[in-house]
Design a binder for these strands. Structure first.
Lengths: 208, 208
DNA sequence: GGTGTTTCTGCACGATCGGTCAGAAAAAGA
DNA sequence: TCTTTTTCTGACCGATCGTGCAGAAACACC
């Protein structure tokens, strides 16, 4: 589907500049959205001229699409790493830890995906119904199996995964609201507190 | 602050047209965002001309701001109705029910607020740090008191509220992803299943 | 140093969008 | 009915934005 570069052969300058553009685009797109962002803003943030941006990417949409695509694999890696071989509760709590770490360290990526899905995800489309669904179904089956074995309490594995997504990503996507409500005093430990809270809830819900 | 109409005196036509514009704007803004939406799209959706839209509102931003403001009170009403006089578990589960009902019946409003906060909420600002913080602090205190009285297990009330926001709104804001993952088969009961799941988790977490 | 390729810029076009304004049309009030 | 106010429209403007293109500048290779 992706008409991606048939020749991934890139010069040093191409690699550097493309990376700089990606970094700048992540900044601008995550803050303003696809339509709110302008090529000038991205160019300025990348320290390049607008025309030079167009030289490396065929237009604004191309940057956006390729940026999304380049981030997708890392974005779902925590779930992919959830292993059927591990200790059930450990695996799930590790998953929560990694998701919270991403909310802390990659809020721009979280907001980028959130905005995309929120607005219809025209650029993800099959990625959701195919790849993501397959991955989630597979991991849900692993969790369901743990429940059958009596190693976890029985709850719906799909909604369990949804609830982990929701709670962890909430602290990235809605960080502004969280900070506004918590105030400056309690806000300095909000990520640690949130992680402890989520894990506490999940342990209570999942202990056999 | 709001230079809102000093005279709320409105003719019948004004009321009807303003309402039609609000309805159309909610459609367009929730789908495309503030910058992605155009006056022509709103006008077309409202069955009016672009100039007529400008006649009733002073520009696009004004529609957006007044729309947000007009929805805010209803949006937080479920939390406002959480009563210290009620039975603790009932009150919290009723709150979840009402939030899920809003995700089901008011997804446009949910996405509108989500996008606004996600992108910095320049139009809410003090509304969050003042009104919302006050409301949440007040209700968190109510819940904390229930815990002191031994009527609920002790967990952090603020993060409890955040987790309810996150889980319930997830099914509105990320409905596309939820549907993609669940598939058409399981998706028809997704709201009922989600509500049951969330309540189950909260009961487990909150039972003394 | 010469040559071909890659990288970058100046210029400018066309499209879109938000907003203005005079005046027409419709409604309300007398 | 006549007048006043409200409502609506057509024409248009300035600004912004994405994009194309010719050619300059920088670079790589021999």
């Amino acid at each position: 589907m992706a008409k991606a570069d048939v020749s991934p052969r890139r010069t040093r300058i191409q690699r550097e500049k493309r990376q700089a553009i990606f970094e700048a685009a992540l900044d601008v797109f995550s803050e303003k959205g696809l339509r709110g962002a302008t090529l000038d803003q991205i160019a300025s943030a990348a320290g390049l001229s607008k025309q030079n941006i167009v030289y490396y990417f065929n237009g604004k949409e191309a940057i956006y699409s390729q940026l999304l695509e380049s981030l997708l694999e890392e974005w779902v890696s925590p779930l992919r790493d959830l292993s059927a071989e591990g200790e059930p509760m450990d695996e799930i709590l590790t998953y929560v830890s990694r998701k919270m770490e991403m909310s802390r360290k990659m809020p721009r990526e979280s907001r980028l995906f959130a905005t995309e899905i929120l607005h219809g995800a025209p650029r993800l489309g099959e990625m959701l119904t195919d790849d993501l669904k397959t991955l989630v179904d597979e991991k849900a089956a692993v969790i369901a199996n743990w429940m059958v074995e009596g190693r976890l309490a029985t709850i719906d594995p799909h909604h369990l995964i949804f609830s982990i997504w929701a709670m962890t990503q909430h602290y990235a996507d809605f960080d502004l609201q969280v900070q506004a409500v918590l105030g400056p005093v309690r806000s300095d430990t909000r990520f640690e507190d949130a992680e402890a809270f989520i894990k506490h809830m999940l342990v209570r819900a999942l202990l056999p």
